[in-house]
Simulated scan of single mutants.
Amino acid sequence: MRHREGRFTGDGKLELYYQCWHPAAEVKAVVGIVPGLGSHSGLFGSLVEGLVASGYGVYSVDLRGHGQSPGQRGHINRWAELCWDVGKFWQLMAAQNPGALCFLLGHSLGATVVLDYALRCSDALPGVVAIAPAIGPVGVSPIKMGIGRAFSRVWPRFSLDTGLPEEAGSRCPDWVAAYASDPLRHRQGTARLATEFLNTARRLRTELLTLQVPLLLLQGSEDSVVPPDGSRLLFGQLSLIDKEYREYSGGLHDLHNDICARQVSLDVVNWINRHVENKGLLCELSYHQ
């Protein structure tokens, strides 16, 4: 496995950090990972290992205000910044891997951004994987979300701890301990981010019904950060033919680092394999594991 780090220019000329992994042989396709709020590009090892072992190149980005990318922790001025950044990230993958299919995989807030981007760039994307997409109610206190709305105009950079416990992400004690000691992780969200997210999630609940990009939707049945009802409802309402839903019994928010991580990695690899081998539409599938 070959590993490399770099930076690319996002919205507002912000130099965003990314890292990538490639197999020794020529890649079959490329997968770009977009982490969620407070997360970063280095927390997807199980997915990276599974994909690279199967012949795929993997890129992972630190969103603005996250990981090794600059910016106030958990802050955006407007939602479009994130979509623009992900667009530039996708273009980077495509430019560095000419001729290869370039998929996007998003987790939580990252999945929300990826799905919004997919609505705008459906002709370019061969498929999207969304893990616990934050498009419905979330586990952050309604009081804190309300404070965010109230302060968004007068003090947009006002920041609060989300209050989400580390153990909400994984049932693996080692991962919970790693989260707590990771200097690149954070639990911050600003007033403007809260408002922009809430407005976007409300808009996407309607607009996603017209999604035309093949979708794999993964959800933990016991996720308290992004409860599964939102993913179940979205999947049931999608008119998209090429869609697949997998729900993991007992799974928490960070399925890629939960005790079901190996199965999650296998499911992602198998889905991408099918879409690389078969460019045509696939049938609707739904699984509870």
Rank of each mutant, 00 (worst) to 15 (best):
R2F: 04
H3R: 09
F8W: 03
G12D: 14
L14M: 14
E15K: 12
L16V: 02
Y18A: 04
Y18C: 05
C20D: 11
H22N: 15
H22P: 07
A24E: 13
A25P: 02
E26F: 01
V27E: 14
V27L: 03
K28A: 07
V30P: 02
V30Q: 01
V31Q: 01
V31T: 06
G32L: 14
G32Y: 00
V34F: 10
H40F: 06
F44H: 13
F44R: 06
G45S: 14
G45C: 07
L47V: 10
E49Q: 11
L51E: 00
S54P: 05
Y56W: 07
G57M: 10
Y59N: 00
D62I: 14
R73H: 04
H75R: 10
I76G: 00
N77R: 12
N77T: 12
W84Q: 12
D85G: 03
W90V: 15
W90N: 02
P98N: 04
A100G: 03
L101R: 06
H107I: 12
L109Q: 13
L109I: 09
T112A: 15
D116E: 13
A118Q: 06
D123Y: 12
V129W: 04
I135D: 01
I143D: 09
I143P: 01
K144E: 10
M145E: 13
A150R: 08
F151W: 13
V154K: 12
W155L: 11
R157K: 15
F158S: 00
G163V: 09
P165A: 11
P165S: 08
P165N: 07
E167Y: 01
C172I: 15
D174P: 06
V176T: 06
V176G: 04
V176A: 02
A178D: 01
D182Y: 05
L184M: 10
R185F: 06
Q188T: 10
G189P: 03
G189H: 14
L193T: 12
L193A: 12
N199K: 11
T206Q: 15
E207H: 07
L209S: 13
V213K: 03
P214F: 05
L215D: 09
L215M: 08
L218C: 09
G220M: 10
P228F: 13
G230H: 04
L233Q: 10
D242S: 02
D242T: 03
Y248G: 01
G250C: 12
H253F: 03
D254H: 01
H256V: 03
N270V: 05
I272Q: 00
N273G: 06
H275R: 15
H275G: 02
H275Y: 04
N278V: 02
K279Q: 11
L285N: 15
S286A: 15
Q289V: 13
